[in-house]
Design a protein around this nucleic acid. Structure first.
Lengths: 136, 136
DNA sequence: CTACATGCAAACCGTTTGCACCCTA
DNA sequence: TAGGGTGCAAACGGTTTGCATGTAG
């Protein structure tokens, strides 16, 4: 398994907690907070502490299994599995609901920018804000 | 003066502190933190507290004189004057230096999205990350 | 059996808030 | 002179960390 192998390669251990956290991340269609993951695991009767969730997320982000996001108006960081692919969100400023934007409007521009600026570009963060049909 | 008038219209007072904070924001070419503003004012021998800086920034953001930004890897929020115009930044992941991107690659897409989704779109946040010529 | 992983509680740190006093309009 | 503004210190809340113990390899 890719996940297990990647952990080993970095001197990390493949513990039940790590697998569970990855599973929770993949079970959600939208980004979730460390707290969300913690509560979800509690419901599933998993004995875990919030700090383990944070420590695990740090590692999953470093290994590039997970992406860390932050949104205006959201008080905590949110996380999602990289396996969801490259995505951006349209966020309702009132109800906070997030809608996936499948097309990335930056991709080409980013390549142009790399040619024009001498930077080596690694990526970008984009979120679009507005009011959803129900809230506007 | 536009600034003074806008404050009054919202039942706010035009104090020396508020003017100073606006001036500091306009004197920087890149976004700055509340702490940066506080320290800059201290250097200028202004007697002010950090909480006043935060409270003022909140109000300036609400009145749309100031934009609040957050960047990956930056531990605190950054602020810039709206008068700088609509901009995005190319951020070096190593030295943290920010380079202004004058062209907005989202504008047209945002209009398309508004037509396609039934959302009323208010704006967007974009930052591009990479390594600058000196750091890469 | 050794190094990494974890739980717990405390520390951290950017930001917010309560309150008494100050100052603008 | 009334109501917003400010300084100070304490509170807040998400996140991190120290330490003793547990467990994967």
């Amino acid at each position: 398994m890719e996940f297990e192998k990647e952990l080993r390669k970095n001197g990390l251990k493949n513990t039940p907690h790590r697998t569970r956290i990855m599973e929770v991340l993949e079970s959600y269609e939208v980004p979730v907070s460390a707290q969300d993951i913690y509560e979800r695991l509690k419901e599933d009767k998993v004995r875990i502490s919030l700090s383990t969730v944070y420590r695990t997320l740090d590692k999953l982000v470093a290994l590039d299994f997970v992406r860390k996001l932050s949104f205006t108006g959201e008080d905590s960081a949110l996380f999602e599995s990289i396996r969801k692919g490259h995505r951006h969100y349209l966020v309702c400023l009132r109800c906070r609901k997030k809608t996936v934007i499948d097309k990335c409007p930056i991709k080409e521009y980013q390549e142009t920018l790399e040619r024009e600026t001498d930077f080596s570009i690694e990526g970008h963060k984009l979120a679009i804000y507005g009011y959803c049909p129900a809230c506007k």
